[in-house]
């Protein structure tokens, strides 16, 4: 009580001083209110944060299933990579002194994706280093949110596959060595071996469809990706009309994760519908080609990153087409 009285008294004393400042703040808020006198006054409720939140929601079932199947280690890897990404994002923002408003969740998406794509026998320091690489170098060095050229999560996994795994002698085991051991349904529902977040094709598809129905992503890229992948596999991979084999190829190595989550990343994919189709076809075809002629089944991340490099070109080509259409109208 006493302190309150004191406060009042002090305020009363300094009234002459206080008043102009309060008036000033009032005029400032008024100016802010009347500042936006321009329509539209309606706004749709989607913001960057809600979009990123939706992506996390879509990824969660598959991630949780991976934890359920592979236990604490899978959980720890995901947790480490998410934490590392979020912390790196914060530090980078501090250094760059930018106020990339809100908190965007985009680092969480990157971290979660990376954690889901890493193998179980990865050393614990890698998710941490990968987060720093993905956010610090791939994203923030290129200008932060919305400016990165490559998909951060896919790039981090590429780094792991190219540098870390061979150096440390980690073999990319975990894949069914002989096809006879795993059936299609085992692969589809995630009861075979693989990366923690990639095993359940079914749950990834479910998450992908959640995004499609939530209008977060369009079907262009995923459909083009999967069709192109299957087509190249069928023609050059020697599968022909062996649908069982093709379906198995679609279910391993995170092809669905790539199609619905990596290739549809807004920032690193083309802007308009035709570009998205083109991008899906290129990345899908590349995935299949790398699987057939490359050195690893882990083709998805390489294909996505290679495709990302082409995005500016695709954008230029497709946007020129829309401009031409305009001219014809004149």
């Amino acid at each position: 009580m006493e302190t309150e009285e004191k406060k009042e008294y002090v305020e009363g004393m300094s009234e002459t001083k206080e008043k102009p400042t309060s008036e000033e703040t009032e005029t400032v808020t008024e100016a802010k209110k009347t500042d936006i006198v321009c329509a539209p006054f309606l706004k749709n409720k989607d913001t960057t944060t809600t979009i990123m939140r939706d992506v996390v929601i879509a990824l969660l079932p598959a991630a949780l299933f991976g934890i359920y199947r592979f236990g604490f280690r899978a959980f720890l890897i995901m947790l480490l990579s998410v934490t590392s990404c979020v912390l790196t994002e914060h530090v980078c923002k501090r250094i760059r002194r930018v106020q990339e408003s809100a908190y965007e969740c985009s680092a969480v998406v990157t971290g979660l994706l990376m954690g889901m794509m890493l193998p179980l026998n990865v050393p614990y320091w890698f998710p941490i280093a990968g987060g720093v690489f993905a956010i610090g170098i791939i994203k923030q060095l290129f200008g932060g949110l919305g400016r990165n050229r490559l998909n951060p999560a896919a790039s981090a996994k590429c780094l792991f596959l190219v540098l870390v795994a061979p150096l440390m002698g980690i073999s990319m085991e975990g894949y069914p060595v002989t096809w006879s051991e795993s059936t299609l349904s085992n692969l589809f529902f995630g009861f075979s071996v693989g990366m923690a977040g990639e095993v359940s094709t079914f749950l990834l598809l479910l998450g992908g469809l959640y995004l499609v129905f939530g209008k977060v992503i369009s079907l262009h890229t995923p459909v083009a990706y999967l069709v192109s992948f299957a087509a190249v596999m069928a023609v050059f991979g020697g599968y022909g009309t062996d649908f069982n084999g093709l379906a198995m190829q679609l279910c391993i190595g995170g092809v669905v994760l790539g199609a619905f989550f990596l290739a549809t990343d807004y920032t690193t994919s083309p802007l308009i519908a035709w570009g998205k189709v083109m991008f899906g076809v290129i990345v899908g075809g590349l995935t299949a080609a790398l699987r057939i002629w490359g050195f690893t089944v882990e083709a998805v991340v390489y294909a996505v990153v290679l495709g990302n490099v082409l995005v500016p070109v695709i954008d230029i080509i497709t946007l020129i087409q829309t401009k031409k259409k305009d001219k014809r109208a004149k």
Partner: peptide, 29 residues
């Protein structure tokens, strides 16, 4: 005032403005 309360953040290249533009323009450019 919904439009006034929304803070601005960087463009994430979602392409929604291009899709929505009835004149076929590229608002983000």
């Amino acid at each position: 005032n919904m439009a006034a309360t929304m803070p601005e953040s960087p463009c994430i290249r979602c392409g929604r403005c291009i899709f929505a533009c009835p004149e076929g323009l590229v608002p983000r450019t």
